[in-house]
Design a protein around this nucleic acid. Structure first.
Lengths: 246, 246
DNA sequence: TCCCGTCCTTCTACTGGATGGAACAAGCTT
DNA sequence: AAGCTTGTTCCATCCAGTAGAAGGACGGGA
């Protein structure tokens, strides 16, 4: 167990639900003696990886934020896609999502928040299940066999409308591949429906998904899906021959 | 010189101009023997702080990106302001900037790229001088005395229109405080003009700046400034009593 | 085809920095 | 005021990190 791995364990103790941690919590979560954690945290703070708040707890520092913006995958694909999310937002005024699949989860690379007040649980940099969101269903529909079978056998319930029967979901995934878009009705959070389309690279592989959140699907589903498809094609052209796999 | 500080030095070797580095470069920039750098980099990669590309060079990893999104200052103020940047973008279709002052630089917290093709040099997470950008001039106009005098005596030239005479700039800063907005004319990059307004917190302190880039100032300067001011006031209301200083 | 330079990786004896228990200090709560 | 929780400092022990050196994997030039 190296020093470096201990310091990284401290950084790893932070996540979406734990953005602010005390020394004790950090020591526990990283499984380190408090004295050791204390010293390492001191170094991390003095470098700027963490900051100490007035109340004494630790939070992720600005320097890590800046560093993160240099990361190639989010930075590259995300920046490429950003203007097209804008377009979708302008055309629909809905909350727009851009996500990739990471293992058996949807990783949200970007989001534009609509000015309606639909409850949205996504967070940029956060992960949500593949079977309860529009972008998730798209990513799942085009995922390798083993990922699909794993997800299909682990369908957790998020709301009373979540699909938990593998056969029902399998049928939906077929529909996604047939129709070219996915939809959800309050399967992730009550009051929120979604539409999503695949984003392909130059070779035609699905590498991401583009979706939006609305209060109800039907009044203008066709127009919304069309807006998403236009943007997805735009992203595809923009990707050109560059090799974004994943 | 602790192990932790060596590992952090390796992370610190990455910046906007050096997003991809080889082992040799990293060892040089972090001032470490290659063998040591190699081992530490191995640990950083296996944790996900860095990734190794097919060509063997190192880049910042996704895990750092995710971690950075938990950082309070950018995350908090930025998320708060994001919808208002959207509003400005919708009203103007120009590139919109949101920045805070950090020491003697403007730190860009967010940006929406307009669909015009004006050359923009800013980068989210990047820093630009205070005296050659709209947001910079705003931040400088309301900065403490010592910051102002430091910047005024270090006026570097970016284009042939950059202001390098302290007395000229001082006069402009007075105008900013008087008129409530700043402007630049090709002072940072040729072909780009800018407008910017201060963003205040509940106490009336200037904590950030909101600006936009246009090809020329005059046709509708009033309307553009008005759009910025509306958004800045919206952010202020949104901040409410929360204590964003800086 | 061979050589040589560059860049990366692995090995290992040595040593100096990291460890964590314990004692101390500073807040809160009862 | 006593007692609890949480954070900080110290220091003897010792194990993990160090970096030199040697080995490998390319790739370009003669």
């Amino acid at each position: 167990m190296s020093v470096t791995s201990r310091a990284l364990a401290l950084l790893g103790a932070f996540d979406a639900g734990h953005a602010s941690l005390t020394l004790r919590q950090l020591a526990q979560r990283a499984d380190l003696p408090m004295a050791t954690a204390h010293r390492l945290l001191g170094e991390l703070v003095s470098w700027g990886a963490l900051v100490r708040t007035a109340s004494g707890s630790y939070e992720v520092g600005q320097r890590i934020w800046e560093l993160g913006l240099l990361a190639p995958v989010p930075s590259g694909l995300r920046q490429l896609a950003a203007p097209f999310l804008q377009d979708v937002y302008k055309a629909t005024a809905a909350t727009v999502h851009f996500a990739v699949r990471e293992e058996t989860k949807a990783l949200y690379l970007d989001r534009i928040s609509g000015n309606d007040s639909i409850p949205v649980v996504s967070r940029v940099g956060g992960r949500l299940p593949l079977h309860t969101t529009g972008v998730g269903k798209v990513l799942l529909a085009y995922a390798p066999e083993d990922v699909q079978s794993y997800v299909l056998s682990h369908l957790t319930r998020m709301t009373r409308y979540s699909i938990t029967d593998p056969r029902v979901l399998e049928e939906e995934l077929r529909a996604v591949r047939r129709d070219g878009y996915a939809h959800t009705k309050e399967e992730m959070s009550l009051g929120a429906c979604s539409l999503a389309v695949p984003v392909r690279n130059g070779c035609g592989e699905v590498i991401a998904a583009l979706g939006l959140i609305v209060a109800s699907l039907d009044p203008e589903r066709t127009r919304l899906v069309a807006a998403l498809e236009v943007a997805a094609n735009g992203i595809r052209r923009s990707i050109g021959e560059r090799h974004f796999t994943q």
